[in-house]
Amino acid sequence: MARAVTNQRKTVNTVVAWAIGLLIFFPVLWTVLTSFKTEAEAIADPPLFFFFNWTLENYSVVQERSDYMRYLWNSVVIAGCSTLVGIVVAIPAAWSMAFVPSRRTKDVLLWMLSTKMLPAVGVLYPIYLIFIELGLLDTRVGLVIVMMLINLPIIVWMLYTYFREIPGEILEAARMDGAPLRNEIVYVLTPMAVPGIASTVLLNFILAWNEAFWTLNLTAAKAGPLTAFIASYSSPEGLFYAKLSAASTMAIAPILILGWFSQKQLVRGLTFGAVK
């Protein structure tokens, strides 16, 4: 009897949860479906759900426009390099705060967090001006720098929370054995820290890939990443639903897949360890 009730409840849960899940996912699904339609089918009335002539034409058209590939490459370079540089800067900082904490560690961490809270629009013009003066406007280097800086607090924080989980005794043991600091980091700490570092890389790559304030304001045709490319479709003359969908699908697919792996890190990374 009890089992039957549980199963019944489980069925209800399943149905309700799947219905809501699909409803929430629907805009993404619809975009993906539309990307396989012809332009005429994409705006057909009534709308076509699954029974249309599936075609890859939109993908090849969008691919052929060489500028799409450039935007894609810009996204990869900007998100990738900013994350890597950020990691390189953050690892020593997070390491020292986790293993050699001082009285000021907490204040430094909170201060770093506070820089993340600075509203971008408040410093828009200074950054814009600095970019013009240094010739960084619409360059990938410029965006790598800005993206690295806006994500650095999150990177430090995430690494810090991961490093803190590494038992300190292991490091003490290595130190007792006379291992120099460098060896301690390379041979003892790094292998234990790799999973945490990988998660941090993943989440920050996603955040940088999707960032859409600085990328829209500091780039034009040359260094614009996919966020800017997609935004250029918002002009009325550029309305081709199927092609827009294909471009959108390509822009979000890699991140959806990465995001899948980073669900847990998302909570840690964006709540600064306050929710575990």
Binding site: I20, G21, L22, I24, F25, P27, V28, W30, T31, I206, W209, N210, A212, L216, L226, T227, A228, I230, A231, Y233, S234, L244, S245, S248, A251, I252, I255, L256, L258, G259, W260, Q263, L266
Partner: peptide
Amino acid sequence: ILVIAPFFVMPTVSALV
């Protein structure tokens, strides 16, 4: 995964879609 997906869609794409 279905519920979490929108978070990974870049803002310009979701706005445009």
